[in-house]
Amino acid sequence: MGLLANALFRTIDTARNNLVQNLVRRTNDLNLAISSVKQEDKPGLLVELWPKMTKEEKPKLLLKVWKNHLPNAYYGYDWWLPLFEEVGFFSNCGAEKPEKEVTLFRGVEPDPQYLRGMSWTPFIYLAEIAVEHKSGPARVFTTKVKPEAILAIVQGQIISKRYKGIRPYTEFIIDYRKLNLEDIREYKN
């Protein structure tokens, strides 16, 4: 494609984004607003709309943006924590906050920055799916997590090559600051 065509497509894309952003800021349907913008714009819009949200809308829309894992890497864990802390523990599947510590798993690269992440699961197979989606030398890790570190328990669906299709998942969203790096171990079958 030529330079002129590329410039034209960028101009059209920018105009579309500006139009969507203006419409989004005027709507009272906050779910529609967040659904209408590009993935990378969702976190910024979430924070912009946060003061307009009801107590009931905040966990739903926070989760909607959280599940968009692309922005998580851009914004970092410390960006998300105040939002989860303000909302308090929640679940989209009726799960209660555990009263005892739970054993959780995480598929990541063996780097302290990733080991103490926010996304954990009680199922080994889900951590293995996470490993298959990583580009680096990822492995499955495990740790015990105390109830006070659990911010949310959510369920959804994930696409897996290993299991050939869509699989359900359960994710525990954790306050990573409450995880002790020395307690996180590589999982051995």
Rank of each mutant, 00 (worst) to 15 (best):
H133E: 11
Y74A: 11
R26H: 11
D41P: 00
G156Y: 09
Y75N: 10
E96A: 10
F9M: 11
P110L: 02
E101F: 05
D29W: 08
L4N: 06
L70C: 00
E182Q: 10
E56L: 07
T121Q: 06
L3G: 06
F84C: 00
L62I: 02
T54P: 07
W50S: 07
Q113C: 00
R116V: 13
I129M: 04
A149S: 14
W66K: 00
R25L: 15
R167P: 00
T14E: 14
A149C: 08
I34Y: 09
K188L: 15
K60N: 12
L81Q: 01
T121S: 15
I158V: 13
Y77F: 06
Q155L: 00
A130D: 15
S36Q: 09
H69S: 13
Y163V: 01
L30E: 06
T143A: 14
I12P: 01
S36Y: 07
E148N: 15
E56V: 13
K188E: 15
N68A: 05
I166V: 15
L126Q: 14
L46F: 09
L3H: 14
I153M: 04
V102S: 01
P82L: 05
P110N: 13
A152N: 09
P98W: 07
Y163F: 15
Y169F: 14
A15G: 00
S135G: 12
A95D: 12
P71H: 05
T121D: 04
I184Q: 02
N92V: 02
R167L: 14
F89L: 06
V145F: 10
L70R: 09
V24M: 07
E128Q: 15
G165H: 06
G2M: 07
